[in-house]
Design a protein around this nucleic acid. Structure first.
Lengths: 298, 298
DNA sequence: ACACTTATCTGACTTAAGTCAGGTAATATG
DNA sequence: CATATTACCTGACTTAAGTCAGATAAGTGT
C-alpha cells in the first residue's frame, strides 16, 4: 500500500463528504431539520417499527420519541401500537406525510440525475459507483434464504446466464444446462441463498436436494461489482452449512474450464475432481466434496 | 436515464454517507467536537489565513473566532496579524497542535487503509474511486496556469507519454516527438494549462508560441478518470483564449490516427485538416485553426 | 400471581452549532 | 484628512441534537 493510494482514497472521501453533505443539506431546503427529515424518509422507505427505526438511524429512544411527536404534530405521520406486541409502536405516513416524503424523493432523484448527467459514459460511471458502494458498505452485505421464484433471485440467475453466454461464446440455455425444479431448491429439500448489499442483489447460490444424502450446488454467481470481497467463499461456506443441517453428506457440482476463478475456489476449498456425472453440455469439470459433521449457521 | 440507474447512484450515496459519517465520527474519538477538529485539520493542511479558513469551512465569522479562541486556549495554535494587512489574521499550529494534527492524519490514514484492504484488486478499486470522486467533485475542477517545470505538469506529461506508448505499441520518446523548449511554453511566448481536481492533477494542455502569430497546441492530455466530462474541450477553449490574448491568429497541432477521441474533438471544434508541417514520426494527422477576435478569459 | 424484562415516553438537563447586532482597529478612497 | 470599508471580535441569543434518570404500560417466565 503506497501513500498515493491512500491519498487517492481520501480524495474520494472528501469529494463524497462534500457532495453528500450537499445532498443532505438540500433536505434542509424543505424547512425541516435533518433529524426530522431522516425519520420521515426512513418511514417512507418502509421502516415502520419504531424500534427498527431507532436502530437504523442510531437515535436515542428519548430523541426518537420527540421526533415522532413532532411529525405527528405536523400531521405527517400516525402512530399506533403494534398488533403483535402492544409495547411496540408502528408509524405510518398520513396522506400529507406521503406528499412530503415524495418531495424528498423527487429532490433526491433530481440530485442523482444531475450527477449522472455530468458524465457521458453512464454505465461505466455506475459500475464504478457500484464497486465503491459495495466496498464501502461491505459490512452490510447480508446473505439470506430466498425463494427460487423471488424476483431478486431471478435477477441474479438472469445475470448469471447472460454472463455465461458471453464467456462461453454461445447462448447459455437454462433448460439445457439442467435447470433444477424450484421445489428441489426450497426447504426442506434444498435452499437458495441470496446476497444483498443495501437493497441490491449482488450474488446467489443454490443447493439442490437429491436422494441418499447427496446435494448439488448450482447457480453460484457473484456480481462483478462485488468480486474480490470473498463473497463466493462465504456463500459456499453457508451452503455447506445448510447442506449439513439438511442431513446431506456429499455435495457435487459441475463447471466450465473458462471459469478459472471458480475452479481455483473449489480446488482451494477441499473439492475433489471426479468424472462426469451428468450430460450438461456446458460442463467440463466435475467436483465432489464430502461434508464433515460439526457446524453452525451464524 | 432509467429508474434503476438512479437507484444505483443513490445506493452509492447512502453507502458513502454512512462511511464518511463514520470517518467523521472517528474524529470525535479524540475528544474534540467536529467543528474544532475541522479547523485544526484545515490549518494543518496549510490554510493559515483566517478569512480563507472561514471561506473553506463555510463558517460564520463569529463562530470561527470562537473556535480559534478555543484552539488557542488549548495551546494548539497561535494567531497573529498578517504581515501584509494587519486587519487579517493568520493561524499556525504550535508543537502541540502539530502533534494533535498528526493524530488525526494517522486516524484518517488507517481508516483509508482499512477500506482499501477489503478489496483484492486495489488498482481497480482506486480507479473506480477516482472516477466517482472526479464526477462528484466536478464543480471543483480548476484550470490554472502552471510552469512547464511544475511537478504536477511533469506528472501529467509522464502519464501522457506512458499512455501514448501503450496505444501506439512503441515507446513514445518526448525528444523524438519534438519536445518544446520550456521557455516557449511560458508567458509571454506561450502557456501551460493544468487541470486540478481536489489536489490531483487530472489534465494538461500546452500552447507553444512561435513567430508570425502562429501557435502550436501540444501535450493535450486528460486523465482516464476525468474523461467524458468535457474537460478536453474546456482546456482547448481556454488555450484558444490565451492564444488570442497573446496575439496569435493561427493554431496548429499534430496527432495520431489511433487517438480517435482527439480527432473527433478537433474536427467538431472547427479545426481543418492540413498537410504535414513537421517530421514528428508519431504524427499522422495535422490540423490548423484560424482564431476569431472577441473573447475573454473567465 | 409474582417479580422481571422490554418498549416507549417524559422532563430536566448539556453541548454543539449557528445567527445577529453592534464594536474596534486597520486600511482604502475621495 | 475625513469618511467609508474591511476583517475580525464579543455578547446575547436560537435551534438542533443528544443524554440520562425515572415513569408507565405491556409482555415473559416461574
Amino acid at each position: 500500500m503506497t501513500l498515493t493510494d491512500i491519498s487517492r482514497f481520501r480524495r474520494l472521501s472528501r469529494a463524497v463528504t462534500t457532495q453528500t453533505g450537499a445532498l443532505d443539506h438540500s433536505f434542509l431546503g424543505l424547512g425541516r431539520p435533518l433529524g426530522t427529515a431522516r425519520v420521515l424518509n426512513a418511514i417512507g422507505h418502509g421502516k415502520n417499527d419504531v424500534g427498527a427505526l431507532r436502530d437504523y438511524l442510531g437515535l436515542d429512544s428519548g430523541l426518537m420519541s420527540r421526533l415522532l411527536r413532532g411529525l405527528e404534530g405536523e400531521g405527517l405521520i400516525e402512530t399506533g401500537p403494534s398488533q403483535t406486541d402492544a409495547r411496540r409502536k408502528v408509524a405510518q405516513l398520513t396522506k400529507a406525510g406521503q406528499a412530503a416524503f415524495e418531495q424528498y424523493e423527487t429532490l433526491s432523484d433530481q440530485s442523482a440525475k444531475g450527477v449522472l448527467s455530468r458524465y457521458s459514459n453512464t454505465e461505466h460511471l455506475l459500475q464504478a459507483m457500484d464497486l465503491v458502494a459495495t466496498v464501502l458498505g461491505r459490512d452490510q452485505i447480508e446473505i439470506l434464504i430466498a425463494d427460487p421464484d423471488d424476483l431478486r433471485i431471478q435477477t441474479c440467475v438472469q445475470a448469471y446466464c447472460d454472463e455465461l453466454s458471453e464467456i462461453l461464446g454461445v447462448t447459455f440455455d437454462r433448460q439445457t444446462s439442467g435447470d433444477p425444479e424450484a421445489e428441489s431448491l426450497r426447504t426442506p429439500k434444498g435452499v437458495f441463498l441470496l446476497a444483498m448489499s443495501d437493497g441490491l442483489p449482488i450474488g446467489c447460490c443454490a443447493l439442490k436436494g437429491q436422494s441418499d444424502g447427496m446435494g448439488e450446488v448450482k447457480r453460484m454467481w457473484v456480481s462483478p461489482s462485488a468480486r474480490g470481497l470473498g463473497l463466493a467463499k462465504q456463500l459456499m461456506f453457508q451452503i455447506e452449512d445448510h447442506a449439513r443441517s439438511l442431513g446431506m453428506t456429499r455435495l457435487r457440482l459441475d463447471t466450465n474450464g473458462k471459469l478459472t476463478a471458480a475452479l481455483s475456489l473449489y480446488r482451494n476449498d477441499g473439492w475433489q475432481d471426479i468424472p462426469r456425472y451428468n450430460d450438461n453440455p456446458y460442463a467440463e469439470f466435475f467436483f465432489e466434496k464430502r461434508l464433515g459433521s460439526a457446524s453452525s449457521i451464524g
